[in-house]
Write a protein that binds this DNA or RNA. Structure first.
Lengths: 197, 197
DNA sequence: GCTATTATATGACCATCATCATACACAGCA
DNA sequence: TGCTGTGTATGATGATGGTCATATAATAGC
């Protein structure tokens, strides 16, 4: 190797990060190869030394997003008792900060309606990531003593994703805040996570 | 007028319908002016006699989708007692048929993550449509005696949209069916819509 | 310092797309 | 049966975007 041994790997990672952010913010179809390269400080030509196609970049970027997302979920729950951990995750997920951060945050909410239109590889990666997130939530619900934890986890994630997405789509700030709040209250009650006053 | 008096209006409506279907199936950014015209049996050139721009078409098509969607919601609830009506709507919304119909069905689920990326006019139309759908649901919940009907309607719609979207994204058919079912059960229980055995 | 090799840049190709100018076709009327 | 004006088609333009061939720049080992 003539360049630094890790040179290309570093560039690769930078590209993945840049793509993951851009795709969440702009959507897979509005993101261009040239734009991603520029964001990483490069020009468009070298792209195909890193990825075989744009589709492959999209797939890989989705994987990257879910890694961040799972890490975040684990971090919220780690070193907390189950109820407090789940409460913390819900509060993070249904927060104004999460709603307003277009280029980071949960890939499920950012890409959900783009997904059925992507090619198979990307869809598989996404589905895999979503399944894993569901498992993390189910595990937490199980610790809380819910018998049908898997079913409940599906329902919980559905409302999280739906509420965050609806809040992002709502143009009236007050309504948007309300949407987040209503689902937060509803979920808190439903899973008996009322903070011990 | 040399052509039939309604000729242009009819074309206009055909374009709106075609656009509404294509946009739900392909997404606003992947739909092309030429494709929509072709779907209506025309060629691309005449487009600008009907719409000032593609953006305007997208906005108008979103309005069209919500008209269909609200009509559907009303139809499910009409001539039924509140509980049965709401149950019927939930069963329609969280059904395999709705999940598998890419080009028709609720615009909220089809476009939710494209929305933050559209221009203002389209976002306003969407938000307006979503608000109205929430109102329809809230009204139904109010009839059922729920005190905080507005908040509950937000939460209900969030789970509906989230679950349908997640089911569409899931590549494993059995998991996809399960996602729909879990939210249907969860909502049915939550709003006490158990069918009278 | 020279050279071999690897990472990135330049520049081009072709396809797609929104937009528009202009030409044509249709139907009601004289 | 021509005339007229409205609705649609033809075709062009400029922009953008994915892809690739080829050229250049960077550095580790001799």
């Amino acid at each position: 190797m003539r360049y630094d041994a890790e040179h290309k790997q570093n560039t690769h990672k930078k590209l993945l990060k840049a793509a993951a952010d851009a795709i969440r913010a702009e959507g897979p179809h509005r993101v261009g190869v040239a734009g991603v390269m520029a964001k990483a400080g490069l020009t468009h030509g070298g792209f195909y030394a890193h990825f075989a196609s744009k589709d492959e970049l999209v797939s890989a970027a989705i994987g990257q997003m879910f890694e961040e997302s799972h890490a975040r979920a684990m971090r919220e729950m780690l070193d907390r008792d189950p109820a407090e951990g789940l409460r913390a995750y819900i509060r993070f997920y249904l927060s104004r900060a999460h709603r307003d951060a277009k280029d980071v945050g949960c890939p499920v909410a950012s890409l959900i309606s783009d997904l059925p239109r992507l090619e198979t590889a990307a869809r598989e990666r996404f589905a895999e990531g979503a399944r894993q997130l569901t498992l993390i939530l189910a595990e937490q619900l199980r610790k809380l003593g819910h018998a049908d934890a898997d079913a409940q986890a599906d329902s919980l994630l559905a409302e999280l994703v739906g509420a965050l997405s609806m809040a992002r789509a709502e143009t009236d700030p007050k309504r948007s805040d309300a949407i987040i709040l209503h689902s937060r209250q509803s979920l808190t009650r439903r899973f008996q996570l009322e903070s011990p006053a």
